[in-house]
């Protein structure tokens, strides 16, 4: 009995340490974002905010320093980029949602074919699509840059959308092919017998059943596009196309960074994907079950 209790207590302690490791960094950012630099640039930094303030968020959103804000910009080195997180988030959204839409449409159609039809070149093209994903991004950085430049797309949403679609599509196709492979065929066959075309079967019969799989694929695609950094870094130049990771990195690795301001910007940036992950949690887990479980 006592032994069991000790084990339970130990397990709780382990869980708490785990929780600290997982959530601590995020909570620390949240904490920093409601403090001012003068409390963070101390030894040790203030952990429990003395006077929590939303001034950092106000500064990032309105771009005019609130009165209570001391001059953090010693020497005036807060980059013009640092305060453009909102337009950057907007770019990120446009890019990530477009990528998700294209990838789902193109990917689902192809995946259904791979899962259901036998045709010459099937294995070869499938292998080709999957292998293309194994080429490291940095390896094709220059050629991709050149393609985008020749298409006249540098510094545009479209540049990122096209590149991300190409990079994410293989995963989507693989994932959905897996997913479709697990679906019972009887319903489709019935639909086919009723005279539906293949495409019609896909649209009217299969799509509703596979909605959870599509949702998971959408979540993965969105996250992938939202997070990408390397290509966003050198395919964009101005805030017309710069995405949130690029702007945030420019801010955060600036030597003279304001912890407080950048934390606020960072929190704004990570909230959308976190909401996304939590809402789609069931699908993501179920999707993984299909992909990796069983």
């Amino acid at each position: 009995m006592i032994r069991q209790r000790l084990i339970d207590a130990g397990m709780t302690a382990v869980g708490l340490v785990l929780a600290l490791f997982i959530l601590g960094p995020i909570l620390w950012m949240l904490d920093s974002s409601v403090q001012l630099d003068r409390d963070l640039f101390t030894v040790p930094p203030r952990v429990i905010p003395q006077q929590p303030t939303l001034d950092n968020y106000r500064y990032v959103i309105t771009r005019t320093p609130p009165k209570s804000y001391e001059r953090v910009t010693m020497g005036g080195r807060v980059s013009g980029e640092a305060l453009s997180i909102l337009p950057a988030l907007r770019n990120s959204f446009i890019v990530a949602s477009s990528v998700t839409a294209v990838v789902l449409a193109v990917g689902a159609v192809a995946a259904y074919t791979y899962a259901r039809l036998q045709f010459a070149g099937r294995d070869l093209t499938y292998a080709f699509i999957l292998t293309s994903r194994l080429i490291p991004a940095i390896s094709v950085a220059i050629p991709v840059f050149v393609i985008i430049d020749r298409l006249g797309l540098l510094d545009s949403h479209l540049a990122l959308i096209v590149v991300y679609v190409a990079f994410i599509l293989p995963f989507t196709i693989w994932f959905l092919t897996q997913y479709f492979g697990y679906l019972p065929r009887d319903i489709e066959e019935a639909a086919l017998l009723d005279g539906c075309t293949r495409f019609g079967t896909l649209r009217r019969v299969v799509v509703p059943i596979v909605a959870p799989g599509l949702a998971a694929a959408a979540a993965f695609a969105f996250m992938g596009a939202y997070s990408e950094f390397l290509y966003a870094l050198f395919l964009t130049r101005t805030i017309a196309a710069k995405t949130a990771p690029v702007v945030l990195v420019a801010t955060a690795i600036n030597f003279d960074v304001s912890f407080a301001l950048a934390s606020a910007a960072l929190i704004l940036t990570i909230v959308p994907p976190i909401i996304f992950a939590l809402v789609f949690r069931k699908f993501i887990t179920r999707g993984m079950l299909v992909g990796f479980g069983r």
Binding site: T12, G15, L16, L18, A19, I22, L23, P25, I26, W28, M29, S32, M223, Y226, S227, F229, A244, P245, L248, V249, A252, I253, F259, A262, S263, L266, T269, I270, P273, I274, F276, A277, L278, R281, I284
Partner: peptide
């Protein structure tokens, strides 16, 4: 606790890797 962690553990996964880098750098 385990139930809570099953949800919480999604958060680092949802955060873009450069953001994770920035957080840990600080």
């Amino acid at each position: 606790l385990a139930g809570f962690l099953r949800v919480a553990i999604l958060l680092p996964w949802a955060i873009p890797v450069v953001m994770a880098g920035i957080i840990w750098k600080w």
